[in-house]
Amino acid sequence: MFTAIGKVMMNWLDQTGGAADMVRSAGFWLARSRFEFKQFVLQSITIGVDSFGVTALTSLFTGMVLALQAGNTINNIFGDPIFVGTIVSFSLIRELGPVLTGVVVAGRAGAAVTAHIGTMAVTEQLDALYTLGTNPTQYLVIPRMGAFLLTMPVLTVFSNIFGVIGGYLVAVYALGVPGEVYLSDITTFMGAKDFMHGFIKAFIFAFMIATVCCYKGVSTRGGAEGVGKSTTGAVVTCIVLILVLDYFLTAILAAFGI
C-alpha cells in the first residue's frame, strides 16, 4: 500500500522534474535560436479555431444557469431578482471564464497537442528533428507555448462575453429583469482589477496546459497505446491542476488585493 503510494509520488515528482527541465530548455532555446514564427501562427489559429465553438457554447449556458440559480435564490429571499448581473459577471470574469476556457482548451487543443507530439515521439519523428539540425523544444514546444499563452486570454475574453450574454438572456426573458438594470449591475460593481484577476488566471492556466501537454507528448513511449495513455493523462492532469490552481491563485491574488 505505502509502496504503491510511494511509487505514485515518485512518478509524479519525476514527471514534474521532467516538465521543469523542458521549460528550462525552452528558455534556453528561445534565447539562443530562431523563433519558429510560422509554427506559432499556425498553432495559434488551430488552438483558437478548435476551442472557440465549445468555449462559446459552454460559457453561454454557464451564464444562463448562473442567472437562473442566482435569480431564483434571490427571488426566494428578497422577493425580487436583484443583482443578477453582478453575480453572473463576478462569477464568470473572476472564476468561471478562465476555468471553463482552460478545461475546454485542455480537452480540445491540449489533447491534440499531446496526441500529435506523442505520435511523433513513438514514430521517431522527434529523433528525426535532432538529426536535421533542430530539436523538439525549438520546433514544437516553444511555438505551442506561445500559442497557448496568446490564445487562452483571448478565448477567455470571448468566454466572458458569451457568459454575460447568456446571463442577460435568462435575466431579461425568464426572470423579467430589465436589460438596463442587468447591465448597470455589472458596470457599477466590476472594476479593472476583476478583469486583471481573470486575465492572470488565464495566463497561468495557459502556461500550465502548454507545459503539461507538450511534456506528456515528448515523453510518450510505447506505440499507439502509449499515445492514448499520455493524451488522456495530459487532459486529466490539466483539469485537476486547473481546479487546484484556481483556488490557490484566488487566495494569492486576493492577498495582493486583486
Binding site: 511523433m120 514514430t123 521517431e124 519523428q125 529523433d127 528525426a128 535532432y130 538529426t131 539540425g133
Partner: peptide, 14 residues
C-alpha cells in the same frame, strides 16, 4: 550530429 545523416527504420517522415 551535423557529421551524420540518419535513415530511420520506418522513415520517420514528418
Amino acid at each position: 550530429r551535423r557529421h551524420f545523416g540518419y535513415l530511420f527504420q520506418e522513415g520517420a517522415l514528418f
